[in-house]
Amino acid sequence: MEALGAFVHLVPVTLLQSLIYAFAALGIMIPFRVLAFPDLTSEGSFPLGACVCAAVLAAGAHPIVATAAAVAAGFAAGCATALVHQHARVNTLLCGILVLTALYSINIRVMGQPNIPLFGFANVFELALGAGKDDTWRRIALLGALAACACLALWWLLRTEIGTAMRAVGASLAMARAQGVDVGLYTLWGLGIGNAFAALGGSLLAQNQGFADVNLGFGVLINGLAAVILGEAIVGAQTVARLLAAPVVGAIVYYQVVSMALAFGLQPSDLKLVTAVFVLVMLLLPAVRGRSLPVRMRE
Protein backbone atom coordinates (compact mmCIF):
# COMPACT_ATOMS: atom_id res chain seq x y z
CA MET A 1 0.00 0.00 0.00
CA GLU A 2 2.86 2.25 0.85
CA ALA A 3 4.45 1.54 -2.51
CA LEU A 4 1.23 2.40 -4.32
CA GLY A 5 1.03 5.67 -2.42
CA ALA A 6 4.58 6.51 -3.40
CA PHE A 7 3.79 5.77 -7.03
CA VAL A 8 0.61 7.88 -7.05
CA HIS A 9 2.49 10.71 -5.42
CA LEU A 10 5.01 10.65 -8.26
CA VAL A 11 2.47 10.51 -11.12
CA PRO A 12 2.67 14.25 -12.02
CA VAL A 13 6.48 14.39 -11.86
CA THR A 14 6.72 11.25 -13.96
CA LEU A 15 4.21 12.65 -16.44
CA LEU A 16 6.30 15.80 -16.80
CA GLN A 17 9.42 13.74 -17.36
CA SER A 18 7.68 11.49 -19.88
CA LEU A 19 6.49 14.48 -21.92
CA ILE A 20 10.11 15.64 -22.19
CA TYR A 21 11.19 12.18 -23.33
CA ALA A 22 8.25 12.10 -25.73
CA PHE A 23 10.19 14.52 -27.95
CA ALA A 24 13.12 12.14 -27.98
CA ALA A 25 10.76 9.25 -28.79
CA LEU A 26 9.31 11.26 -31.68
CA GLY A 27 12.83 11.94 -32.86
CA ILE A 28 13.65 8.23 -32.68
CA MET A 29 10.47 7.21 -34.47
CA ILE A 30 11.22 9.36 -37.55
CA PRO A 31 14.40 7.60 -38.72
CA PHE A 32 13.29 4.15 -37.51
CA ARG A 33 9.77 4.19 -38.87
CA VAL A 34 9.55 6.82 -41.58
CA LEU A 35 12.96 6.24 -43.15
CA ALA A 36 13.66 2.62 -42.10
CA PHE A 37 17.07 3.89 -41.00
CA PRO A 38 17.90 2.55 -37.52
CA ASP A 39 19.60 5.69 -36.27
CA LEU A 40 21.33 5.59 -32.89
CA THR A 41 22.52 9.20 -33.00
CA SER A 42 19.83 10.39 -30.60
CA GLU A 43 21.79 8.82 -27.73
CA GLY A 44 24.29 11.62 -28.43
CA SER A 45 22.03 14.35 -29.81
CA PHE A 46 19.77 14.29 -26.72
CA PRO A 47 22.61 15.28 -24.32
CA LEU A 48 23.94 17.54 -27.10
CA GLY A 49 20.67 19.47 -26.94
CA ALA A 50 21.02 19.78 -23.16
CA CYS A 51 24.66 20.87 -23.33
CA VAL A 52 24.23 23.40 -26.13
CA CYS A 53 21.15 24.85 -24.45
CA ALA A 54 22.98 25.12 -21.11
CA ALA A 55 26.08 26.68 -22.62
CA VAL A 56 24.05 29.26 -24.54
CA LEU A 57 21.88 30.02 -21.50
CA ALA A 58 24.94 30.36 -19.28
CA ALA A 59 26.34 32.82 -21.81
CA GLY A 60 23.33 34.95 -21.01
CA ALA A 61 21.20 34.32 -24.10
CA HIS A 62 17.42 34.30 -24.31
CA PRO A 63 15.86 30.86 -23.56
CA ILE A 64 14.27 30.73 -27.02
CA VAL A 65 17.67 31.34 -28.59
CA ALA A 66 19.24 28.66 -26.40
CA THR A 67 16.53 26.12 -27.28
CA ALA A 68 16.75 26.98 -30.97
CA ALA A 69 20.53 26.54 -30.83
CA ALA A 70 20.02 23.10 -29.28
CA VAL A 71 17.56 22.13 -32.03
CA ALA A 72 19.98 23.33 -34.72
CA ALA A 73 22.83 21.36 -33.14
CA GLY A 74 20.67 18.22 -33.09
CA PHE A 75 19.80 18.75 -36.74
CA ALA A 76 23.49 19.00 -37.59
CA ALA A 77 24.25 15.81 -35.64
CA GLY A 78 21.60 13.94 -37.63
CA CYS A 79 23.01 15.31 -40.87
CA ALA A 80 26.47 14.15 -39.81
CA THR A 81 25.22 10.58 -39.42
CA ALA A 82 23.48 10.72 -42.80
CA LEU A 83 26.62 12.08 -44.49
CA VAL A 84 28.85 9.43 -42.92
CA HIS A 85 26.41 6.81 -44.20
CA GLN A 86 26.33 8.20 -47.72
CA HIS A 87 29.95 9.08 -48.25
CA ALA A 88 31.77 6.46 -46.22
CA ARG A 89 29.16 3.81 -47.12
CA VAL A 90 29.20 2.72 -43.50
CA ASN A 91 26.47 0.53 -42.03
CA THR A 92 23.59 2.58 -40.60
CA LEU A 93 24.06 1.39 -37.01
CA LEU A 94 27.80 2.02 -37.07
CA CYS A 95 27.29 5.57 -38.41
CA GLY A 96 25.14 6.39 -35.42
CA ILE A 97 27.64 4.90 -32.97
CA LEU A 98 30.50 6.85 -34.57
CA VAL A 99 28.63 10.13 -34.30
CA LEU A 100 27.29 9.58 -30.79
CA THR A 101 30.74 8.64 -29.53
CA ALA A 102 32.21 11.79 -31.05
CA LEU A 103 29.39 13.81 -29.55
CA TYR A 104 30.43 12.83 -26.03
CA SER A 105 33.66 14.80 -26.43
CA ILE A 106 31.90 17.57 -28.30
CA ASN A 107 29.36 17.92 -25.51
CA ILE A 108 32.09 18.48 -22.95
CA ARG A 109 33.81 20.94 -25.28
CA VAL A 110 30.56 22.82 -25.77
CA MET A 111 30.09 23.24 -22.04
CA GLY A 112 33.77 23.62 -21.25
CA GLN A 113 33.18 21.29 -18.30
CA PRO A 114 31.22 18.05 -17.74
CA ASN A 115 28.20 19.86 -16.32
CA ILE A 116 26.62 23.28 -15.94
CA PRO A 117 24.15 24.31 -13.23
CA LEU A 118 21.40 26.56 -14.57
CA PHE A 119 19.84 27.87 -11.38
CA GLY A 120 19.33 31.58 -11.65
CA PHE A 121 19.18 31.61 -15.44
CA ALA A 122 15.95 32.26 -17.32
CA ASN A 123 14.37 29.26 -19.06
CA VAL A 124 11.42 28.49 -21.31
CA PHE A 125 9.23 27.59 -18.32
CA GLU A 126 9.78 30.95 -16.70
CA LEU A 127 9.24 32.62 -20.04
CA ALA A 128 5.91 30.91 -20.70
CA LEU A 129 4.55 30.46 -17.18
CA GLY A 130 5.91 33.48 -15.33
CA ALA A 131 5.24 33.19 -11.62
CA GLY A 132 3.67 29.75 -12.09
CA LYS A 133 6.91 28.31 -13.48
CA ASP A 134 7.48 25.92 -10.60
CA ASP A 135 4.02 24.38 -10.73
CA THR A 136 4.33 20.83 -12.08
CA TRP A 137 0.87 20.76 -13.62
CA ARG A 138 1.48 24.02 -15.47
CA ARG A 139 4.71 22.66 -16.83
CA ILE A 140 2.82 19.53 -17.90
CA ALA A 141 0.23 21.65 -19.70
CA LEU A 142 2.95 23.63 -21.44
CA LEU A 143 4.86 20.56 -22.60
CA GLY A 144 1.64 18.77 -23.54
CA ALA A 145 0.68 21.70 -25.76
CA LEU A 146 4.18 21.76 -27.25
CA ALA A 147 4.08 18.02 -27.96
CA ALA A 148 0.66 18.39 -29.59
CA CYS A 149 2.02 21.20 -31.79
CA ALA A 150 5.03 19.06 -32.76
CA CYS A 151 2.76 16.16 -33.71
CA LEU A 152 0.49 18.43 -35.73
CA ALA A 153 3.44 19.94 -37.57
CA LEU A 154 4.85 16.50 -38.37
CA TRP A 155 1.40 15.25 -39.37
CA TRP A 156 1.12 18.09 -41.83
CA LEU A 157 4.67 17.58 -43.10
CA LEU A 158 4.37 13.83 -43.66
CA ARG A 159 1.27 14.33 -45.78
CA THR A 160 2.80 16.89 -48.12
CA GLU A 161 4.43 15.90 -51.40
CA ILE A 162 7.80 16.18 -49.70
CA GLY A 163 6.73 14.16 -46.66
CA THR A 164 5.15 11.46 -48.81
CA ALA A 165 8.37 11.14 -50.78
CA MET A 166 10.25 10.83 -47.48
CA ARG A 167 7.95 7.99 -46.43
CA ALA A 168 8.52 6.37 -49.81
CA VAL A 169 12.27 6.31 -49.10
CA GLY A 170 11.60 4.28 -45.96
CA ALA A 171 8.96 2.08 -47.55
CA SER A 172 10.88 1.13 -50.72
CA LEU A 173 14.25 2.42 -51.84
CA ALA A 174 13.80 0.98 -55.33
CA MET A 175 10.45 2.66 -55.78
CA ALA A 176 11.69 5.98 -54.40
CA ARG A 177 14.69 6.04 -56.73
CA ALA A 178 12.64 4.99 -59.74
CA GLN A 179 10.23 7.84 -59.01
CA GLY A 180 13.03 10.38 -58.93
CA VAL A 181 13.30 10.80 -55.17
CA ASP A 182 16.83 11.80 -54.09
CA VAL A 183 17.24 9.18 -51.38
CA GLY A 184 20.40 10.75 -49.95
CA LEU A 185 18.87 14.18 -49.60
CA TYR A 186 15.66 12.93 -47.97
CA THR A 187 17.64 10.73 -45.57
CA LEU A 188 19.70 13.78 -44.61
CA TRP A 189 16.61 15.83 -43.85
CA GLY A 190 14.87 12.98 -42.05
CA LEU A 191 17.80 12.25 -39.74
CA GLY A 192 18.25 15.98 -39.22
CA ILE A 193 14.64 16.44 -38.17
CA GLY A 194 14.68 13.34 -35.96
CA ASN A 195 17.78 14.44 -34.08
CA ALA A 196 16.51 18.01 -33.86
CA PHE A 197 13.59 16.58 -31.90
CA ALA A 198 15.90 14.53 -29.70
CA ALA A 199 17.99 17.64 -28.99
CA LEU A 200 14.82 19.61 -28.22
CA GLY A 201 13.98 16.93 -25.63
CA GLY A 202 17.47 17.25 -24.15
CA SER A 203 17.26 21.03 -23.94
CA LEU A 204 13.86 20.84 -22.22
CA LEU A 205 15.22 18.31 -19.74
CA ALA A 206 18.14 20.58 -18.86
CA GLN A 207 15.83 23.54 -18.39
CA ASN A 208 13.33 21.49 -16.41
CA GLN A 209 15.88 20.13 -13.94
CA GLY A 210 18.11 23.20 -13.85
CA PHE A 211 21.37 21.65 -14.92
CA ALA A 212 23.00 19.95 -17.86
CA ASP A 213 25.38 17.04 -17.60
CA VAL A 214 27.24 15.18 -20.32
CA ASN A 215 25.85 11.89 -19.03
CA LEU A 216 22.29 13.12 -18.98
CA GLY A 217 19.85 10.95 -20.84
CA PHE A 218 22.06 7.87 -20.82
CA GLY A 219 20.01 5.08 -22.40
CA VAL A 220 17.56 7.51 -24.02
CA LEU A 221 17.68 5.58 -27.28
CA ILE A 222 16.52 2.28 -25.82
CA ASN A 223 13.99 4.03 -23.59
CA GLY A 224 12.68 5.92 -26.60
CA LEU A 225 12.54 2.78 -28.68
CA ALA A 226 10.67 1.03 -25.87
CA ALA A 227 8.22 3.95 -25.84
CA VAL A 228 7.74 3.79 -29.62
CA ILE A 229 7.13 0.03 -29.57
CA LEU A 230 4.82 0.24 -26.56
CA GLY A 231 2.95 3.15 -28.14
CA GLU A 232 2.48 1.22 -31.36
CA ALA A 233 1.11 -1.72 -29.41
CA ILE A 234 -1.45 0.66 -27.91
CA VAL A 235 -2.44 2.98 -30.77
CA GLY A 236 -1.09 1.12 -33.81
CA ALA A 237 1.01 2.52 -36.65
CA GLN A 238 -1.21 2.12 -39.71
CA THR A 239 -1.78 5.81 -40.39
CA VAL A 240 0.42 8.88 -40.14
CA ALA A 241 -1.62 10.11 -37.17
CA ARG A 242 -1.12 6.84 -35.28
CA LEU A 243 2.55 6.77 -36.18
CA LEU A 244 2.93 10.16 -34.51
CA ALA A 245 0.70 9.47 -31.53
CA ALA A 246 2.54 6.25 -30.70
CA PRO A 247 5.81 7.79 -29.37
CA VAL A 248 3.94 10.28 -27.18
CA VAL A 249 1.43 7.79 -25.78
CA GLY A 250 4.19 5.22 -25.46
CA ALA A 251 6.49 7.57 -23.54
CA ILE A 252 3.71 8.53 -21.12
CA VAL A 253 2.77 4.91 -20.42
CA TYR A 254 6.38 3.69 -20.34
CA TYR A 255 7.58 6.13 -17.70
CA GLN A 256 4.54 5.50 -15.49
CA VAL A 257 5.20 1.76 -15.69
CA VAL A 258 8.84 2.34 -14.81
CA SER A 259 7.86 4.58 -11.91
CA MET A 260 5.49 1.91 -10.62
CA ALA A 261 8.13 -0.78 -10.92
CA LEU A 262 10.58 1.37 -8.98
CA ALA A 263 7.96 2.12 -6.31
CA PHE A 264 7.41 -1.60 -5.91
CA GLY A 265 11.08 -2.21 -5.28
CA LEU A 266 12.83 -2.61 -8.63
CA GLN A 267 16.45 -1.59 -8.17
CA PRO A 268 17.06 1.55 -10.27
CA SER A 269 20.34 0.06 -11.40
CA ASP A 270 18.47 -2.94 -12.85
CA LEU A 271 16.22 -0.71 -14.92
CA LYS A 272 18.38 -0.67 -18.05
CA LEU A 273 18.50 -4.46 -18.07
CA VAL A 274 14.74 -4.73 -17.70
CA THR A 275 14.20 -2.17 -20.48
CA ALA A 276 16.62 -3.90 -22.81
CA VAL A 277 14.91 -7.25 -22.23
CA PHE A 278 11.52 -5.61 -22.77
CA VAL A 279 12.62 -4.12 -26.11
CA LEU A 280 14.13 -7.43 -27.15
CA VAL A 281 10.96 -9.33 -26.32
CA MET A 282 8.80 -6.80 -28.13
CA LEU A 283 11.11 -7.03 -31.14
CA LEU A 284 11.03 -10.80 -31.19
CA LEU A 285 7.33 -11.29 -30.46
CA PRO A 286 6.16 -10.63 -34.02
CA ALA A 287 8.83 -12.98 -35.36
CA VAL A 288 7.56 -15.71 -33.03
CA ARG A 289 4.09 -15.10 -34.42
CA GLY A 290 5.53 -15.37 -37.91
CA ARG A 291 5.40 -11.70 -38.80
CA SER A 292 8.21 -9.45 -39.83
CA LEU A 293 10.37 -7.62 -37.33
CA PRO A 294 9.13 -4.21 -36.27
CA VAL A 295 12.52 -2.63 -36.81
CA ARG A 296 12.98 -2.71 -40.53
CA MET A 297 16.37 -2.32 -42.12
CA ARG A 298 17.19 -1.00 -45.52
CA GLU A 299 18.31 -3.53 -48.07
Binding site: R167, A168, A174, M175, A176
Partner: peptide, 28 residues
Protein backbone atom coordinates in the same frame (compact mmCIF):
# COMPACT_ATOMS: atom_id res chain seq x y z
CA UNK B 1 9.95 -3.35 -56.08
CA UNK B 2 7.65 -1.18 -58.15
CA UNK B 3 5.42 0.19 -55.41
CA UNK B 4 5.90 0.75 -51.68
CA UNK B 5 4.01 -1.92 -49.75
CA UNK B 6 3.54 0.12 -46.59
CA UNK B 7 1.80 2.93 -48.46
CA UNK B 8 -1.61 3.12 -50.07
CA UNK B 9 -2.30 2.95 -53.79
CA UNK B 10 -3.04 6.66 -53.94
CA UNK B 11 0.08 7.58 -51.97
CA UNK B 12 2.23 5.56 -54.36
CA UNK B 13 0.60 7.27 -57.34
CA UNK B 14 1.08 10.66 -55.67
CA UNK B 15 4.82 10.03 -55.36
CA UNK B 16 4.95 8.91 -59.00
CA UNK B 17 2.91 11.89 -60.19
CA UNK B 18 5.70 14.25 -59.08
CA UNK B 19 8.46 12.25 -60.74
CA UNK B 20 10.91 14.72 -62.20
CA UNK B 21 9.07 17.72 -60.73
CA UNK B 22 9.96 19.77 -57.70
CA UNK B 23 8.13 18.28 -54.72
CA UNK B 24 6.32 20.89 -52.69
CA UNK B 25 5.03 21.55 -49.19
CA UNK B 26 1.55 20.90 -50.45
CA UNK B 27 -0.87 18.10 -49.59
CA UNK B 28 0.12 15.06 -51.63
Amino acid sequence: LGAAGAMSIEENLAVAARRGCRRRFRAA
